[in-house]
Computed example of a mutant assay.
Amino acid sequence: MSRTIAMISDFGYRDAYVGIMKSVIKGLSPDAQLIDLCHEVPAHNVMSGAYLVASAVAYLPENSIVLGVVDPGVGTSRRAIAVQAGQLTYIGPDNGLFNMAYDLTPPLKAVELSNSDFHLPRVSKTFHGRDIFSPVAGHLARGVAFEELGYEIEIESLVRLPEIGPLIKESGIECRIVHVDHFGNVVTNLSRDVMEAAQRRPVFARIKEHRAQFAESFAHVAKNDPVAYFNSTDFLEIGIRNGSAAEQLDLKQRNMLHIETERI
């Protein structure tokens, strides 16, 4: 049985970490199909990782395994987990990395990776990506049952990222920046679905002393003008045509933005 394993981490490509993880997986499951979703998550940035996971999962083949390692708590008491949600299985640290994906497809079952039979013989305190998560993914890909990976844990006990949801107010919607992309566009936690469920229509985004008009794309505003739009994964994003919103508007992850709305 061949399964797809989609990998995301903050390891980058300068070091051998990603290649070692792939080698462990291939040694256990030679037929596994490996996809590199992203290995340039900002170091230790679980919130950015959570957005990037959520932005990709809808496009993965059915029955894929998502292997995530953005793990600043490695070597502590944080749990190593596997979670079944819809047609996907998530493997990684229990630190909120998969939260936004859970919001898209709620978890059905979760286990702590307590069965050391599916770990490498020697487990370091600093590289669980190699010693726990990769071998577990490899064993799962070659047919080991999910239930054998460890003991079941309550879905409600899974760690959640704090303050992840937008706030619906009479005057508009308050949302938080969760990710800054390569171009300096800033992505918020406000999805089109939330906006529509609240029966609101966006008018403009208030950004300090600036206002960003809503448009379908950058091409609908003048060069160097800020623009608000729902991006390709249907989350509200602020950009600047031919520029960096993060730099030119001095925006950072976790900043709050106010979206003026009108009722539908």
Rank of each mutant, 00 (worst) to 15 (best):
E156K: 14
L60P: 03
E237R: 14
A16V: 12
L120M: 14
H179R: 02
L249N: 02
G49A: 14
E154N: 15
N224V: 01
I259T: 12
A6G: 05
Y229Q: 02
R206P: 00
A58T: 08
Q248N: 09
R263F: 10
V46G: 09
G49P: 02
P106S: 15
S2W: 00
P166C: 06
I65V: 15
H179C: 12
V111S: 05
V69N: 08
H258T: 03
S116N: 15
L88C: 02
I155A: 05
S23F: 03
A56H: 09
E247S: 14
L88Q: 06
E147G: 01
V70S: 05
S48K: 03
S171K: 12
K223H: 06
R241C: 00
K22H: 14
K22V: 12
L149I: 10
A215W: 00
P202H: 07
M1W: 04
E170G: 08
F127S: 02
S232T: 13
V18G: 07
L34A: 03
Y13F: 12
N99G: 12
Q199S: 13
M256K: 13
L140C: 04
A205I: 11
H119I: 05
P42T: 08
V194M: 06
T126W: 10
V70P: 03
L97G: 06
V227S: 00
G239E: 13
I20M: 14
R78Y: 05
A50C: 10
A85N: 04
G27C: 07
R122K: 09
Q213M: 13
P72R: 00
P107H: 07
D250L: 13
K26L: 15
V159F: 10
R14N: 11
L140G: 08
I164H: 11
E112K: 15
Y51K: 03
P72Q: 04
E247A: 15
E62F: 11
S116F: 11
R200G: 08
K26N: 09
N99M: 09
S77M: 10
H210E: 10
A246P: 00
G138M: 01
Y59M: 09
Q199H: 13
S48N: 07
I240C: 04
R130M: 14
P166K: 06
A197P: 00
Y51Q: 05
I8R: 05
S2H: 06
M1G: 14
T4A: 14
M256Q: 06
E209K: 15
I155H: 03
T89W: 04
A43Q: 08
K169V: 07
E260S: 04
M47D: 11
M256S: 01
R79V: 11
V41C: 14
V69I: 14
D117H: 13
V74N: 09
L60E: 06
F230Y: 12
I81D: 05
H44K: 11
G68T: 07
Y90P: 03
L97Y: 08
I20P: 02
N224Y: 03
N231P: 08
H139N: 15
L190Y: 04
I238W: 06
S55D: 14
L120T: 13
E196I: 09
